[in-house]
């Protein structure tokens, strides 16, 4: 019987040694899970550890501590055979469609490479499958013989998606898949991701700093700050009723394309910038920039509590 949660992240930590006995805590005690066919959005400012978190989940980085269970198996303690299966089931789409495709391989070779490792296909089957995948992502079979430099940014991102789909994964980490693209192309790619999810029951971890896009695609959203999750809730909730002061500030900073609203609404201003993760503030990491900070906040680290059903927040205010 398959478990409901496809990915379970338990107290995951990823520290980097940066010399002189300094430790950079990129991901610091993060726990969450992703159900089958669900999209979890991960947002936060640059340097908050979202990408490191995604990569550690995929086993691209070794975890310093904690566990990632995929379909009940620990990703960081798998045998060779399980690892190979995991690499087939969990794929990644990268941010930069210019840098993530090998310029010396044709599109067909790029998409086919993963299949050669995981499936035993005849040449004909392989070619058919590549054409089918190109069709799925909205391109056609002539593209198979082209090279990446002949394609536009949006088309390349489609190739990135086709490559991930080629090995029939269950779970895809999308690391800022749209931030390098034009607004009209962003909409196309997001529509494609949603369509594929509906058809194939994929689960996504959608990493982005574009909160309105994350809200649009995700079922639940986690907000990260300096390596920790400060709030985790269903996406409608987090935008209608944000609880953590950081989430509130982040949401109020999104400009809304409507002059009347922009003129009247009040912004919660965040002073300064994200502090260095090498020496984060004690207690709640947000206390230096928080307008509600109390004495307690600089001493005790708040835990992630479930305030309402499925709405978790780590803040001493609640």
């Amino acid at each position: 019987m398959a478990k409901e949660n496809l990915v379970e992240v338990v107290n995951l930590k990823k520290y980097f040694n940066v010399g002189k006995n300094k430790v950079l805590k990129a991901v610091d005690d993060v726990s969450f899970n992703i159900k089958r066919g669900e999209t979890l959005g991960l947002v936060g400012e640059s340097g908050c550890g979202k990408t490191t978190c995604g990569r550690t989940i995929l086993g691209l980085y070794d975890a310093t501590d904690g566990h990632v269970y995929f379909d009940g198996k620990d990703v960081h303690a798998m045998g060779k055979k399980d690892k190979l299966n995991f690499k087939k089931d969990a794929q990644m789409i990268f941010q930069d469609p210019y840098a993530s495709l090998d310029p010396r391989m044709t599109i067909g070779e790029i998409i086919g490479e993963g299949m050669d490792v995981h499936f035993n296909l005849s040449n004909k089957e392989r070619e058919e499958k590549i054409n089918e995948l190109l069709h799925t992502v909205g391109l056609n079979q002539e593209h198979a013989s082209r090279f990446p430099h002949e394609l536009s940014g949006g088309q390349r991102q489609r190739i990135g998606i086709a490559r991930a789909l080629a090995v029939e994964p269950k779970f895809i980490v999308c690391d800022e898949p749209i931030s390098a693209l034009d607004v009209s192309i962003q909409a196309q790619i997001v529509n494609l991701l949603i369509k594929l999810q509906n058809e194939m029951g994929l689960a996504y971890l959608f990493i982005s700093h574009d909160l309105s896009m994350v809200k649009h695609i995700s079922d639940r959203v986690g907000v990260m700050y300096l390596g920790s999750i400060v709030e985790l809730a269903p996406s409608a909730n987090i935008y209608k009723k944000p609880l953590h002061p950081y989430t509130k500030a982040l949401i109020s900073a999104i400009p809304i394309p409507d002059p009347k609203i922009e003129d009247t609404r009040k912004r919660i201003k965040l002073e300064g910038e994200v502090p260095s993760p090498i020496n984060p503030p004690a207690g709640c990491k947000f206390n230096k920039r928080c307008v509600y900070a109390m004495d307690k906040c600089s001493q005790i680290t708040p835990e992630l509590k479930e305030l309402e059903k499925d709405h978790f927040v780590a803040c001493h205010l609640y």
């Binding site: 607004v183 009209s184 909409a187 309105s212 809200k215 649009h216 996406s235 999104i254 394309p257």
Partner: peptide
Amino acid sequence: WALLNSVPRLDTESKQELYSL
């Protein structure tokens, strides 16, 4: 119109198809 429509806004239902040109 196409430009105005293709931006996701906080009021739109999640997972609705975005207008794309």
